[in-house]
Design a protein around this nucleic acid. Sequence first.
DNA 1: TAGATTGTTAATCGATTAACAATC
DNA 2: TAGATTGTTAATCGATTAACAATC
Lengths: 209, 209
Amino acid sequence: MTMDIPNPVLRRLPLYYRRLLAAVDGGEEYVSSEDLGLVADVPSAQVRKDLVFMAEKGRPGVGYNARNLALRLEELLGLGRLNDAVLVGAGNLGRALAVYPGFIRYGLRIVALFDSHPKKIGDVIGALEVLPVERLSTFIEQRRVKIGIVTTTASAAQEVADLLVAGGVKAIWNFAPRRLKVPKGVFVKEVDLGSELAVLLHSLTRSGG
Amino acid sequence: MTMDIPNPVLRRLPLYYRRLLAAVDGGEEYVSSEDLGLVADVPSAQVRKDLVFMAEKGRPGVGYNARNLALRLEELLGLGRLNDAVLVGAGNLGRALAVYPGFIRYGLRIVALFDSHPKKIGDVIGALEVLPVERLSTFIEQRRVKIGIVTTTASAAQEVADLLVAGGVKAIWNFAPRRLKVPKGVFVKEVDLGSELAVLLHSLTRSGG
DNA sequence: TAGATTGTTAATCGATTAACAATC
DNA sequence: TAGATTGTTAATCGATTAACAATC
């Protein structure tokens, strides 16, 4: 039923959403595709195409109703209900993500932390205690958790992914520098800081750094 | 002189690089484009196209010399020398990135931390003390720092970016949920966790979550 | 009405994939 | 030689941009 939305579009929608919230806050009733394009660095035509996926129509000569379009986006992006996630790997990055306040706003709630290192078990991070990774599969099965966040070392990542999949997780957000192998039907979103950094550093070598 | 490399290619190169290091470690002398493709989820033809940008040629029937290709990638990605960066915003994410050991490996060294919050000034994170943001511009000017990492709140991000640009920074890695406006000649790499998350959550609503 | 902005079609751009002769 | 894998060309795919009649 839900139309299939291309990834590039999906990634722009939260940017539009933020702009719309600001508009509502600022008392602007309508926002144009031109304005929305500014926050995503795309021309207005791209914005209008992106919004074809939305039920909300714009008004020619006026723009899009900020409040209504924001509500539609909340629906589509699933920001209404909180999606539970577990995080595995209570290192520095894991701790940072565990207490990151932004996630709640985007519909993600981390409900448990796991680590394999005995020294870390029992640590309290934010409101959560670090649990032993042995309890991972049982936990996500019982709580029907569908999202796993991997912030382990590269060497532990695949093993953890297997445990997540075994427990029934359907989407994995992988911050470890290693591609994960998962069965079909499980989605993996890789965030590879090394790849991002490569783009950044290369920009320097070209512009006379 | 350096050929202009498309971003998608640039992002795959670190993945190939990691695979090559593993090969060298494991005593494999040659690696095929097929093998390299596995780590980046692309067919072998894509890998061979990507490697056109490299000086290193493969041997038909054999593959690429792992050690040599790794060296070429180090050159191209600038992993040999360390690129100095400052980080602004000593919140949770900032602290995590400040002590993240992976950066050194990819050629990035964070040489100073800044924050505007008086309570945080003087905190020691890793080996670095948090400095007042008032000293940011002078610092990067004197040290000729070309890279800035922004992990502030959305509301402070643009102001910080302006300071970075004023001090002479040429590349900004932005983790704040707001697009930055910078003059031409300054490169911004946005890492928007909200956008990433949108893709992840949408995968769930489609596959029967 | 006049001015602004939409929704949509057509044109452009760039990246990915397939195929295969050349080469080790 | 036979088998494997390269470098490269051609075909495909998908996303972006431009243009404009329709609409408020």
